[in-house]
């Protein structure tokens, strides 16, 4: 009798939880102070395929927001829609109070948004220095800022004059992140920085992001590595089939293994 009651209770708790978490939420209704970036009902088509189905979420200023989800959930499409690389067909993306959903990519970047794509976007034939220089203003490097960035990833200083194509995968990712922060930006958008990297490199990247977080850099980070998400995230949005199915504090998701299992397919063994 007790067993049946327990099962029914768990079922009801999960059902109510699922119902709440799967319901598309209005980002304007979020209890989120100072959202720097908001997605409102974003629909994006790629050719004949409808990829994003009304994505809603917000990125608070000075916080790290994790965008999680299984492969094919639409995370990369959401970031590319934000950068104007794939134009949203419907909905509004607002950055610092301005609708940017119709702006061309260069104009979006010039508002102070730095983007690190999943492919890293490193220019292989250019040197490390030239890759970084491309992201600076007309005046070139600010010496203090360059020193700070190279202190974060000292290996880049050692390979400053070498062609970026000769760097390892982890070093390329460090270069991509360095390029994104070589000038002060209002928002850092990073797509799966740990993909395919060795554990030691991932730890190094986590340390680097923690330093950026301590400096109150606003970051929107797509990640499949839950350890990294747990270590860095302040808030989280979870995507599934082109929709946001969960939104809230990362700390709450980090301790709710059932929710992790349901939203991300993570087993306890995967992150304990």
């Amino acid at each position: 009798m007790y067993g049946i009651a327990k099962d029914v209770t768990i079922f009801l708790v999960l059902f109510v939880h699922k119902k709440n978490s799967l319901k598309p939420l209005n980002p304007r209704g979020c209890k989120m102070p100072n959202p720097l970036l908001t997605f409102e009902d974003i629909h994006t088509h790629i050719g004949p395929y409808h990829i994003l189905h009304g994505v809603d979420f917000a990125v608070p200023e000075g916080k790290v927001t994790m965008l999680l989800g299984r492969n094919g959930a639409g995370k990369t499409t959401a970031l590319r829609s934000l950068m104007g690389l794939w134009k949203p067909n419907q909905g509004r993306i607002t950055f610092a109070g301005r609708d940017i959903s119709k702006l061309p990519t260069p104009e979006i970047a010039r508002l102070g948004i730095a983007y690190v794509p999943e492919t890293m976007g490193i220019f292989a034939s250019l040197t490390v220095r030239e890759n970084l220089l491309l992201a600076t203003g007309a005046a070139g490097f600010q010496p203090d800022r360059l020193d700070e960035v190279l202190a974060l990833f000292p290996v880049l200083g050692q390979k400053f004059a070498q062609a970026a194509g000769g760097l390892s995968g982890g070093q390329k990712q460090m270069l991509a992140i360095s390029r994104a922060i070589i000038e002060e930006r209002r928002l850092l958008v990073v797509d799966e920085p740990t993909k395919g990297l060795a554990p030691a490199v991932i730890l190094h990247l986590i340390e680097a992001f923690q330093k950026l977080k301590a400096a109150r850099t606003t970051i929107l980070l797509v990640e499949q590595n839950f350890e990294m998400a747990r270590a860095l995230g302040d808030t989280v949005a979870v995507m599934e089939d082109g929709r946001i199915v969960h939104r809230g504090d990362m700390a709450a998701l980090a301790v709710d293994t059932g929710l992790q299992e349901r939203l991300l397919g993570l087993s306890l063994a995967a992150h304990q």
Partner: peptide
């Protein structure tokens, strides 16, 4: 080499 990334910069 990568036009899209240059635009994103």
């Amino acid at each position: 080499e990568n036009r899209e990334m240059v635009e994103a910069l």
